[in-house]
Amino acid sequence: MAAVVEASRGERDNQDQELVQRALTRDPAAVAALVRRMAPVVHVRVARALSRRRVEARGRDLRADMEDMVQEVFAALFESDGRALRAWHPERGLSLENFVGLLAEREVVSILRSGRRNPWTEDPTLDTTLNELDTDQQSSAEGRVASRQRLDQLMDRLRERLSPLGLHYFRLLFVEERGVAEVAEETSSTTDALYAWRSRLGRLVKQLARELDDEEEVSDE
């Protein structure tokens, strides 16, 4: 066999699409190759998500929870004939790794928000933690903690609500503060589309904040 010449981004995307297609036919070698590539990516995203919630998870074996969630994420990727994986379109600017990583983030949020699937459902969690902070710390610190918690909740809602592409745009435009023209070039989109995304993302964050407020009011009643 001749030497394999390294692939450009486009060629790599084509190879990855072929790999995904073969894996979705349950070809063992393709599944093994996909798992080997994606497992560390999923692991990192799940571990980061659990690490953010380490205060809530005091005393739990996060390693075991992480491993279970990694498996849940892979199940989500392959279920319904791989509908989630089939939604990957590299021409929209997301690599396979990034696409799967963002799906993993969304799946973890979904698991932790679900009473049935959340492994921490029976544990004392956020409320206890905040109550202890309320009694132990100064009011300014309480405000900061509450503010951070609210922002975390908002980010989780965004992860749940947005597609991987929407999350990618949020990260590029807001978190990394990159210019619209630069993002348009990188994602093969138009500046008009990106301005529309930026506006839509801003409105969505505010809408989600209102929803959280409404839910709190209902639970207080």
Binding site: P28, A32, H43, L62, F78, D81
Partner: peptide
Amino acid sequence: LFRPLSSELQDRLTEQMSAPVAKVIR
């Protein structure tokens, strides 16, 4: 938490995802 996943776990994932079933059970 961040130590690499074991090869046993990755093997299990491969095994499960290779199963010729119409729907993945969680």
